[in-house]
Amino acid sequence: MTHSFLPIKPAGSTRWDIAALGEVMLRLDPGEGRVRNTRQFQVWEGGGEYNLARAASKCFGLSSTIVTALPRNDVGWLVEDCISQGGVDTSHILWRDFDGIGRESRVGLNFVERGFGLRSARGVSDRGHSAASGIRPGEVDWDKVFGTQGVRWFHTGGIFAALSETTAEVTVEAIRAARAHGAVVSFDLNYRASLWASRGGSAAARDLNRAIAPHVDVLFGAEGLGSAPSGGDPRAAIESAVADFPNLRVVATTCRTAHSANTNDWSAILHADGAFHASRERPGLDILDRVGGGDAFASGVCWALMAGKTPAEAVEYGAAHGALAMTTPGDASMARLDEIERAIHDNDAGVIR
């Protein structure tokens, strides 16, 4: 089933259901401790764009592939192994020769504390000179990815686009190729101040977003694009974005109020086909690890729309998936589809046995 407002290629008509473009980092997690004091880390793979592709595979059973770059060394192979365990195809990884010290190509690292109570979650990234940040236009055969092999849905976002001048160019190149071959294009604004601190700040990010937005079908995030002020009603920001860019078929965003690091009010809003749809509200949601909740929301929306669900259903699947993803450690979702549907329809969190 497809939607009149968002034509999607039928299942089985392409090699890949979803292709994502982005950096895949190693996340080093001290668990309940602090980065500054720990003597051991648990290692996960993660990345804003990749997380959606992984959830598409592991949770929703779709075929997914990641376009990224890694150094040809043991750390790069570790990331490749993690990606493979996540069920995501690795055939589109660009492998870089390693210079021995990572001056030119390395794996980006992300040290993440979950936070607790009044201690906020904290991320300390160490990603300079990463292999993915050096991807240049012309390196990926997009006609092969989208044409010969075929893709139903292409996803990328503002994190990858912000890594360097060349990744911004590659983002536009990939999106244009995806549209030319009839794939739905989604883009997650995902503004990170740390990535723009030396490159013009939020104003520069907004200019890049506005250059990309005319080529996007589905937008995740509401602020940093339209003319509405930040921090206000997300509906106003969505209306502003749709007015500025009428090509946007779907705009969706999560709505979060953090009472503490592990207690948040959580819901979501989606605009499609001229109407708003709001998810059920989850006040006082208990959270173990908030990182990746937005990516899980986006993946739930993507799958639901690809599965022919209505916009009202899609925002519920996204919000429930995001809520469940934040109950487990690491960036990636550990939820299954039946758990998402149970969370949508049932408030009972009792023991299942």
Rank of each mutant, 00 (worst) to 15 (best):
F5K: 01
P7A: 11
D17W: 02
A20T: 15
E23Y: 05
R27W: 05
P30Q: 07
G31L: 03
R34H: 13
V35F: 09
F41K: 02
F41T: 05
Q42M: 05
V43E: 08
G47H: 04
L52E: 09
F60C: 06
F60K: 01
P71F: 05
R72W: 05
D74W: 02
V75K: 00
V75I: 14
I93Q: 11
D97L: 01
G100Y: 05
I101T: 13
R103Q: 15
L109T: 08
N110C: 13
R119D: 15
R119T: 12
R122A: 15
G123M: 11
D126M: 03
A132K: 02
S133W: 00
R136H: 12
E139Y: 01
V140A: 12
F146L: 04
G147T: 04
R152Q: 10
R152D: 13
G158C: 07
F160G: 13
A162H: 06
E165A: 14
E165H: 08
E165C: 00
T167E: 10
T167W: 05
V170D: 14
A174C: 09
I175R: 06
H181S: 12
H181D: 10
H181A: 13
V184S: 13
V185Y: 04
F187P: 09
D188I: 01
L189G: 07
R192W: 07
A193Q: 11
W196F: 10
W196C: 11
A197E: 15
S198F: 06
A205E: 08
A205L: 03
L208D: 09
N209D: 13
A213K: 03
P214M: 06
F220H: 10
E223T: 11
E223M: 00
G224P: 06
G224E: 09
L225P: 09
A228W: 02
P229N: 09
S230K: 04
P234I: 03
P234G: 13
V242C: 13
D244K: 01
D244Q: 14
F245D: 12
P246H: 07
R249F: 07
V251C: 13
V251H: 11
H259V: 01
N262W: 03
D265R: 00
I269M: 12
L270S: 12
L270D: 14
D273N: 15
A275E: 15
H277K: 02
E281S: 14
G284W: 02
G284Q: 09
L285P: 04
L288I: 11
R290L: 10
V301F: 09
W303H: 15
M306Q: 11
A307K: 00
A307P: 04
K309H: 15
P311H: 09
A314Y: 06
V315K: 04
A320F: 03
G322I: 02
T327V: 02
P329T: 12
D331E: 12
I340H: 12
E341Y: 02
E341I: 01
A343L: 08
A343T: 05
A343V: 01
A343I: 00
H345Q: 10
N347A: 14
N347H: 11
D348L: 00
A349L: 07
A349F: 08
A349Y: 06
V351A: 14
